[in-house]
Simulated assay, not measured.
Amino acid sequence: MGWWNCPDSADVVTGDAVLDSVRHFLRAVSDEYQKGLARKPTLGELEYALNLAFKVNVDSAVLDGVDGLETKQVVLKTAMRPKMHKVTPGDMFAYRLEDGRFGFGRVIADASVGAFAEIFDYFAARPVFDYTRIDTWLVPPVPIESYSLLETRSIGDWRIIGHTPDFVLGPKYSALRYVYGSNPNTLMWRDMEGNKGPITPAEAQGLPHYVGLDDYLFAQHIASHVQARIAAR
């Protein structure tokens, strides 16, 4: 693990594992909101949670130099980012596998956790899709974190490679349902068109969770299918 001094303050030190831990913490908070409320937290909700956490949990066992101090407020400041590509239904994308090959998919609907994407059963050495394979799924469509994967491209190696003009959801998507809720009594289903309703644990059995997959979770989700394709060659 590497450690380094922050450019704006020589007294502040951070490292790779620290940033990984913070990333996992933020993902975990987001996952809880997505599981319980089928949406991501707002900046205000994260700020409120951090304020409570600092007041209750931060002491000399956690941080140096805080004995006798009280945390009054944690403030998250924002500014406008440079304009980026806004992911829209019909966008074709490529993602890189660990072995260096590219897989392919298409954004098919917006979602509160990012976007729904269909994943094609096709891999190539370059990010160039064979459009004769556009009707063959590797796995059924899944929710993905389209913002971090395709807009900011801050995790993994994902890229927009084309667009299907005037794309609309067809009949084959209408029967797909996704489950969210924190316990059996609050389970809900939703589809790609935003329809939703209560669902029993028995009915929810085997249905995919309505959680936006990041690069790591996506790789886990498709891993067995990718290995099966390699073995079949």
Score class of each variant (00 low, 15 high):
I160A: 01
Y122P: 13
V13F: 12
V56I: 09
R190C: 05
G162E: 08
H85I: 14
I230C: 01
A124Q: 12
G100A: 06
S30A: 14
K86S: 11
Y216M: 15
P89T: 08
K172L: 05
R233D: 07
K72F: 03
W158A: 04
W4S: 14
R229C: 02
I160Y: 05
H209W: 07
V66S: 02
A219I: 14
V168C: 08
T186S: 08
F54K: 08
R27Y: 12
V142S: 01
R81E: 14
G36V: 00
Q73T: 10
Y180A: 01
A125L: 02
P171Y: 00
V139I: 15
R126V: 13
L69D: 04
Y180E: 01
S60K: 12
Y95E: 01
A53C: 01
L97H: 12
A219E: 12
L213F: 14
P82V: 06
V168I: 13
E98V: 12
I199H: 10
V75S: 13
E45F: 01
I155D: 13
S146M: 00
L213N: 09
F167C: 06
V179W: 00
A223S: 10
N57D: 03
V142D: 01
K35H: 00
Q220F: 11
D31R: 15
G15W: 11
G206Y: 11
K83Q: 15
D16Y: 10
N185H: 08
Y122A: 07
T42Y: 02
L176A: 02
V29D: 05
N5Y: 03
L176W: 04
W158I: 06
W189V: 05
A38L: 03
Y48W: 02
L46M: 10
G90W: 09
L97C: 09
T42C: 00
R39K: 11
L52K: 14
V56A: 04
P7M: 10
L149G: 15
Y216E: 14
A10Q: 15
D157G: 00
D8G: 15
P140R: 06
N5I: 05
I230N: 06
